[in-house]
């Protein structure tokens, strides 16, 4: 069975310069699509990627990363909407590349679909009341 998940890999400073991600391909036959990355030498780094492959291989790959010292989080926790701040104006609708914002029919409130979010960050500055927040 195939699985595909969007995850965030946090690399502690000592791992940043080690080649790790390529082994997901080489050893576990996984495919990955990097959505966003920030790697600075001698400092902490992160990669947001969509990782896919056979379920068993996927789980082994994740185990390998964890043992290597990489912290793994599911992606959806990383951009969230501050409900107190959101005015439901809809400015975010056309800046999101994946269509994660949808208008609810009758109320015309804006629904944020975490599942579609790839943490590109486009909505952060496009939101007039700055309701979209990036969390690590």
């Amino acid at each position: 069975m195939k699985v595909a998940r969007k995850i965030v890999l946090h690399f502690p400073a000592q791992l940043v310069e080690k080649a790790i991600a390529y082994r997901l391909v080489k050893d576990f036959d996984l495919q990955f699509n990097i959505l966003k990355a920030s790697i600075i030498p001698d400092s902490e780094g992160f990669i947001v990627l969509e990782l896919s492959g056979e379920k068993d291989a996927y789980n082994q790959g994740i185990r390998f990363l964890t043992r290597a010292g990489v912290k793994i989080e599911p992606l959806s926790q990383n951009v969230s909407r501050n409900e107190e701040k959101c005015t439901h104006c809809g400015a975010c609708l056309t800046v999101c590349p994946t269509g994660a914002f949808e208008v609810e029919d009758a109320s015309r409130r804006i629904f944020f679909n975490h599942d579609k979010c790839i943490v590109c960050g486009n909505c952060l500055k496009a939101c007039p009341p700055r309701a979209m927040e990036l969390h690590f």
Partner: peptide, 24 residues
Amino acid sequence: KSGVIQLMNKEIPTASLSSYSGAL
């Protein structure tokens, strides 16, 4: 409000700055 308008032979997605749900 349908989400798309047609102009110059193009489908253009729409966004709003005014909060309809807030107005409601």
